[in-house]
Design a protein around this nucleic acid. Structure first.
Lengths: 227, 227
DNA sequence: ATTACTAGCTTGCGAGTAG
DNA sequence: TCTACTCGCAAGCTAGTAA
């Protein structure tokens, strides 16, 4: 049994939309050609091949060419379409990162403890994070590159604020899971302090204390993407 | 802007299902080749071309090849998939027939008036049909051929019955509209009396009386297909 | 083991054109 | 007009193979 050639898909789809599931629809090959962005000759050949493989049946009377999709042809469209639909409906919406636990410079603790932030954290992510951030260095290029997409993803936005002396930039939060178990947030800062291969995580409690993780430990992080 | 080549669709779909919307997924070209039923070399070329046209981005480190779908690439899949989905969701489910009104041999009146049928008509199509059938000859081959599909379509089934002397075959009914206005039923008989180019219609009242249709009148019939 | 080059075959396509 | 043929070029693919 010959498979449906992928380049015939558009032709079948066009015929279907013209009602060729239940009727012999009368068409011209040049109209079909225009629709599938091919020449009249190519369209003619498509129909001949489709007929040969029993995906359509053709009736010619005089100048008129009429075409109807067979059950076999229809089920091929359905098959392909649902395969595509399935991969669109259920592709993994998770960013997987791997890296190594490293030391920050303690500034995370300072910033995360500011009232202007903590108030928002409480209401927007549901808890006041432990004052301090967990820094993870992404060792592989694929993970560093994957981070770039967070620039355009939304996440939960913690607004910038000012204490009169200076302003503190916004923070974007993304729900994450560390080593498949510990709930935390990946945070993206408006003003980043270190190079792009290091990411920062916050969580309710002090992860370093509650686990045996220390500098140099290998870490995996999964970040859920909503949209 | 170069369009997505249709033959790259399966590749993109495969990458998507592997999570390449949000991650650089590490794959081998031979695994991809197997999946899309092409050679390793073809798979390699697909990826090169997809990268060239910015549908994916590639990262190579050592032997490992990692790939992520770009926003442009993703939107192309969505575009194609939804086009296909649309033509599947909303193609016309109507059989259009055209023909000429002809005379039957009066037998329709006899059969349609039998109690064994009328009782079922009343409950299954909601009315007792005028005793008599309207015969329409399908002049064009495309309409005659289109009729063949009713053999495998279900419709409303009027069961066969016996009056002790003989049995009367089943009748399948399909909701139809004559000349875009008159509600009627196309009936398919277990035992057909005339040649296949003539179809029979029944309706609540006598169509010939209520319209100016007579033998030779051109008729159009639309039959709704449910499934 | 990889990826991706080259060569060569096959398929797909468009131009021209017959019927 | 229409379909669909032939021809010739381009694209797509596989096999072989280098790195």
């Amino acid at each position: 049994m010959t498979e449906l050639k992928i380049q015939h898909l558009l032709t079948l789809s066009y015929l279907l939309s013209k009602g060729a599931k239940y009727n012999y629809v009368t068409i011209t090959t040049s109209a079909l050609g225009k629709n599938i962005h091919k020449s009249q000759q190519a369209a003619s050949k498509h129909l001949l091949e489709l007929e040969q493989n029993k995906f359509i049946s053709r009736i010619i009377s005089g100048r008129n060419l009429s075409v109807k999709i067979t059950n076999k042809g229809y089920s091929e469209i359905v098959k392909l379409s649902s395969m595509l639909q399935k991969s669109l409906d259920s592709y993994p919406s998770v960013v997987n990162l791997q890296g190594t636990l490293v030391s920050g410079m303690g500034e995370g603790a300072y910033y995360m403890g500011l009232k202007g932030y903590t108030k928002q954290f409480k209401s927007k992510i549901g808890y006041v994070p432990f004052p301090g951030t967990l820094n993870v260095r992404l060792d592989k290029k694929i993970h560093q590159e994957a981070m770039k997409q967070f620039e355009t993803l939304d996440g939960v936005k913690i607004k910038s604020f000012s204490d009169g002396k200076r302003t503190y930039g916004w923070v974007k939060c993304f729900s994450a899971k560390l080593n498949n178990s510990i709930k935390c947030q990946l945070i993206i800062l408006e003003r980043t302090h270190h190079d792009e291969s290091v990411i920062e995580l916050i969580s309710k409690t002090c992860i370093r204390k509650n686990t045996k993780l220390k500098d140099g430990s290998k870490i995996s992080i999964k970040i859920e993407i909503d949209s």
